[in-house]
Every structure is written in C-alpha cells, then in structure tokens.
Computed example of a mutant assay.
Amino acid sequence: MTTARGDSPADETGGLTRVLVADDQALVRAGFVALLDAQDDIEVVGEADNGEEAVRLTRQLIPDVVLMDIRMPILDGLGATRTIAGEPGLAGVRVVILTTFELDEYVFEALRSGATGFLVKHTEPADLLRAIRVVAAGDALLSPGVTRRLVAQFASHAKQPASGADLAELTDRERDVMTLVAEGLTNAEIAGRLYLSPATARTHVSRILLKLGARDRTQLVVIAYESGLVRPGWQ
C-alpha cells in the first residue's frame, strides 16, 4: 500500500514537519503513523511499502523527513536512500533509517549513501519524536555515540570511498573542526573546545560541508573515518 496525503509539497502546512513513512510491514507502519499524526507539530504526508514507492512519493511530496526501513521489496531502503540523496532537487530531504539491529553493515552503507541517521525499531516513542524534530531542524547527529561506533566498526572495511572528498582542501582549523564533528560534538561544544564563537564554529562546519561535497554532519563522520583523519578509539 502506498498513500500520498495532499497533491503537492506546496500544501499549506503551517510550519509542520512533514514526514513520509516507508516500511513494508503494515502494522509497524501504522504504529509510526498513529504516533506521528497525534503530534501538533508533525504531519505524515505519505506512506510507502517499498523503496521504489518511497522514492516516487519523496519526489512528489518533498517531505522534510523520510523514515526509511532498510529491508523492503522491489527496491530496498539502501537503494532508495542513495537515489534520494543523489538528486539535487531533494537536497533538503533528510532520511532516517529504521533498523532492527543498530550495529549493522547495511545501516553503515545507508549512512555512506546519504542517510542523516538511524533509529532502531524498538526506540521509545519520545526518542523517535525527538529524533525527527532534531533532524528536521538540521541539528546534530542522531545517537552520536552509537553512530560513531557503527562508523568506526565498518569504515575500515568499506568497499570504496564515500565520496571524492579531498581533505587537502581543508585548512588546519577546518581539520580540527571536522575531527570534533566526528567525535559527535555540536557546534556549541566545538566552539567551547576550540575557543571560538558558536557562529564561527557553524561557519567552519558549513565551509567543510561545501568543500567536501558532503550532505550533512553524518557524511562528515563517515568521511573522517574513511579518510583516516580519525581512527577508531581516538578521542
């Protein structure tokens, strides 16, 4: 089953966070939809039961966040995430992977492919809602500790680089900032660690994203490990 609520992304939403839910298990999908629709600041704009439909509805509706199951028929969540992340017109869409096992190589590949973060399916409802709001606001990584462990575990076994990123383009200060991003620090925490203003830290992060062609902070974590800028276990 696939459902689109509203005909276009131009619908009046009153500042609501617009979410597309993609999961082939109807009961799981219904649970997410019921929880999200009960919130005053979140609107479910569509549902998909396979990756191909998730991509189609994302193109049609331009949601703020896609909750994407990894294992789906026709096109899995990994392929769907890669497609969405690769389309310039969907640059503002944030994909959050839904997974049963957090330390999963498929989750790592999804992060490399452009997912912003991930959630295990048994996540507490309050944590799910908080995560959607964090991602929609463009803030820090979801579960940074778990994300770092996941990236560190699988980065050294990656089959190919996540991007054509050349760290030689970064200044020494930008390398320092990127290292702290990989540690999971927020802009405010980076500012405190490096004795910068929060605005300056934010500017550094924005420049790093631009220079490396990275989609978001999650991509910076992956690049930092895969490039060898940081290594598992480093602090």
Rank of each mutant, 00 (worst) to 15 (best):
A4S: 13
A4M: 08
R5W: 15
D7S: 15
S8V: 11
A10G: 11
T13I: 07
G14R: 10
A22V: 06
L27G: 05
L27W: 03
V28D: 02
A30P: 00
V33A: 09
D37I: 09
D37N: 11
D40N: 09
V45N: 03
V45C: 02
G46V: 07
V55W: 05
Q60C: 09
L61F: 10
I62R: 12
L67F: 05
D76P: 00
L78H: 08
A80I: 07
A80Y: 05
R82G: 04
T83V: 15
I84M: 09
I84E: 01
G86L: 09
E87L: 05
R94L: 08
I97W: 04
I97L: 14
I97G: 00
L98V: 02
T100V: 08
T100Y: 01
S113F: 09
G114R: 05
F118I: 08
F118L: 01
K121Y: 01
E124N: 13
A126V: 15
R130Y: 14
A131D: 03
A136Y: 01
A136W: 03
A137Q: 12
S143A: 14
V146P: 00
T147D: 12
R148E: 13
L150E: 10
A155Q: 04
S156L: 13
S156V: 10
Q160E: 15
A162L: 06
G164Q: 14
D166S: 12
E169A: 12
L170D: 07
R175V: 05
R175Y: 09
A182I: 02
E183F: 02
G184R: 06
L185I: 06
L185W: 04
N187W: 11
R193A: 15
Y195I: 13
Y195T: 15
T200D: 04
G213A: 14
I223P: 00
Y225K: 08
W234C: 00
